[in-house]
């Protein structure tokens, strides 16, 4: 016998239905970036949106799943940076709770903070697993810093923050633009405190 759906049941199913689709957003955009060899990643927009809508756990699931699937499709080393996605989701939940996506200026500042968090969390993976060099464009800057007296650790962190700055700020601004563009009638289905605190 089927019972009438409660509000909690509906939100659970909404989360379950949205998460795979948000994974698709991450995969689609990052695949395009990989193909075009753009100097950014743009691989966390789905994670950020999900964390704002459903919280950090759902955002983390989106991030980890999209990186796991990306590692078997377009970018094999992606899975090693799954921890970064979890931290991104946690950061977005915290910052979103304080209205960090309320306007362009606040989003810009939140993006800078996100860049620093992402770079710091990725640095140990790059340092210990990749020996400091991942083989992409950022590695050239890492080598440059090492050649000018920076230690390997400092080079990895500094080059990481520099690279992530443009990428994460762009992702936060794109997320704000997307959420502002969504009709209110559709967004009300995904209501959360974080959306209210960010005037979305």
């Amino acid at each position: 016998m089927q019972t009438a759906p409660t509000k909690n049941t509906s939100r659970t199913y909404l989360r379950m239905a949205f998460i795979p689709l948000a994974v698709g957003i991450n995969l689609g955009i990052s695949a395009l970036v990989q193909i075009l060899k753009l100097p950014v990643f743009l691989d966390s927009i789905g994670t950020i949106i999900t964390a704002l809508l459903f919280g950090w756990r759902s955002g983390a699931i989106v991030g980890v799943l999209s990186f796991a699937i990306s590692s078997v499709t377009v970018f094999p080393p992606a899975i090693y940076f799954s921890g970064t996605q979890i931290c991104i989701a946690i950061y977005v939940q915290i910052v979103g709770g304080f209205g960090g996506f309320k306007n362009v200026f606040r989003t810009f500042v939140s993006g800078i903070g996100l860049a620093i968090v992402a770079a710091l969390v990725s640095a140990p993976v790059i340092y210990f697993l990749f020996g400091g060099i991942t083989g992409n464009g950022i590695s050239i800057f890492t080598l440059y810093l090492q050649a000018h007296g920076f230690s390997k650790g400092a080079s990895v962190i500094t080059s990481g923050i520099t690279a992530e700055m443009i990428d994460k700020v762009a992702q936060c601004l794109i997320t704000l633009f997307i959420l502002k563009s969504i009709p209110a009638s559709l967004l009300k289905n995904f209501y959360s405190d974080r959306l209210k605190k960010n005037n979305l």
Partner: peptide, 17 residues
């Protein structure tokens, strides 16, 4: 991006029901 995500959110709402 915007129509893609709007479409995804609509689908998620319909699927969840």
């Amino acid at each position: 991006l915007v129509p893609l995500i709007i479409g995804i959110m609509r689908t998620a709402a319909e699927r969840s029901q």
